[in-house]
Simulated scan of single mutants.
Amino acid sequence: MPVPHPDGDYALTTLYSVPDDAWYLELDHVGGQRTLVLAIVPDEDPGREPTVCFAAGKGDHDIPYTVMRWFMDQVEAEIRTSRGWMTLRPEIVAVIRDLRQEHMGVIADEHLPPVLAELRAAVPGADLADVMLHAFGRGPDGRIL
């Protein structure tokens, strides 16, 4: 569902592309029913950087500064949310990435105890909460956050 900009002429649509392992944020002109700007925020591969693309071939369109600033603030928030774990130490990033790929970001309650035991043996205690949060959206006690 699109999120409207306060002026009502623009909206933000956010979707996830499974084949691309990335979030797509589109700035749409509501009146013209067209996408003007697209931000792509990969959330699985630390080697891929977020990008911003402007729609080509559809004629010029002036985007007000306040609208563009609002859009870029939304993109920045998505980057923080989706990629925050990538700023951790490289060895912790590797553990999180492996867990996300193996478990697709979700783990059933019955599979949690053995995985948690392995993590406690392999990951320093100070990093366990970050690993659990970013790999599964859970705390070190297994509760869903």
Rank of each mutant, 00 (worst) to 15 (best):
A108D: 10
L88Q: 13
L128A: 06
R97D: 10
D109T: 14
T81F: 03
L112M: 14
P113K: 01
T81N: 06
E110P: 02
Q101P: 02
H103Q: 05
D98K: 14
V115A: 09
L99P: 08
I107V: 15
H103K: 09
P114K: 00
L88C: 12
A121V: 02
E110H: 12
E110V: 12
M86E: 06
A108V: 10
H111W: 01
L88T: 11
M104I: 04
V115L: 15
L99Q: 14
A108N: 05
G84Y: 07
M104E: 14
V115P: 06
L99V: 03
L128T: 05
L99H: 06
W85S: 01
D130N: 15
R89L: 11
T87Q: 12
V106M: 05
L128S: 06
P90H: 06
A126F: 10
V106K: 06
A94H: 08
R120L: 01
R97A: 14
L128N: 03
R83H: 12
A94S: 11
P124Q: 01
R100Q: 10
G105E: 00
A121T: 05
D109C: 07
V106Y: 10
L88W: 14
D127R: 08
S82W: 03
E102I: 07
R83I: 12
E91A: 07
H111T: 03
R120Y: 01
I92E: 03
G84I: 05
H111S: 11
P124W: 06
E102C: 10
L128W: 00
A126S: 11
V93T: 12
